[in-house]
């Protein structure tokens, strides 16, 4: 069931899924703090939703800034019912490439940035005994695959972290969700020319319609079956098939 939120933080709101989430939340009357690096994009978004979208330019890898910024954001918002961590990077990685710089960037944005922001939310929601935390994971976190070793790792780490938060906080009435999209048509993936990608706005609509209970789920129902199989595939089959 779709719930309505009064105040939300969307980290990674300048494009793609995060942008669509911020737009849809604001359209429902929710006040949204839109966080990302590209200030021009955030300002443009805020201009479309005056008084509803508050832009905050921030690089999530500046972990030390987060506690103070988090408080600034919540006090300007007048609360925080929902936080969505959507920031993510997936640089192109060649089939034989091992590039520590790219890998660290993924860990920093996809995992450590998430921990820096969601820890703040967890402390807050533990105190207020309410609130909803949503992480944008990925089907890519289900297995370690040849194409994107560290992207896979980062989404698996996010999933485990969110599971732990869920197991800590659910009993207090805090909802913790990890949603795992398959291909979504965004700036991150446009160059990959996915054939069956869904739109970011569709993805956002589904995410906002499933906020009433703690869980991890696949954004697209068909992935429940497909990934139930993939999760159980022995590694030797994956190696042979190049999956």
């Amino acid at each position: 069931m779709a719930r309505s939120f009064r105040t939300a933080i969307v980290v990674g709101a300048s494009s793609g899924i995060g942008l669509a989430l911020a737009e849809q939340l604001a359209a429902s009357g929710c006040r949204v703090a839109a966080v990302a690096r590209r200030k021009d994009r955030l300002d443009e978004l805020a201009a479309r939703f005056p008084n509803l979208i508050l832009p905050f330019a921030h690089d999530v890898t500046e972990f030390g800034e987060v506690p103070e910024l988090f408080q600034q954001v919540t006090s300007q918002l007048g609360g925080c019912d929902l936080i969505i961590y959507a920031s993510g990077v997936m640089p192109e990685v060649g089939k034989t490439e091992f590039n520590t710089e790219k890998d660290m960037a993924m860990i920093n944005v996809n995992v450590l940035g998430a921990i820096a922001w969601l820890n703040q939310a967890a402390i807050r929601f533990q105190g207020s005994q309410s609130g909803t935390i949503i992480g944008i994971g990925s089907v890519a976190g289900d297995r370690g695959r040849p194409g994107q070793p560290v992207y896979n790792t980062s989404k698996a780490a996010l999933s485990t972290y969110l599971e732990a938060l869920r197991n800590r906080l659910s009993k207090l009435g805090v909802i913790v969700i990890n949603v795992k999209p398959g291909p979504v048509d965004t700036e991150m993936t446009r160059h990959l020319n996915f054939k069956n990608a869904i739109s970011a706005s569709n993805a956002a609509k589904i995410i906002l319609s499933k906020t009433s209970r703690s869980r991890e789920y696949y954004l697209e129902p068909k992935h429940h079956l497909i990934f139930a199989i993939i999760r159980r595939l022995p590694s030797w089959i994956m190696q042979r098939r190049g999956i």
Binding site: E68, R124, G127, S128
Partner: peptide
């Protein structure tokens, strides 16, 4: 510190 201790938050 330039912010309040977050653990003090209550509903």
């Amino acid at each position: 510190t330039r912010h309040l201790e977050l653990a003090r938050i209550r509903r």
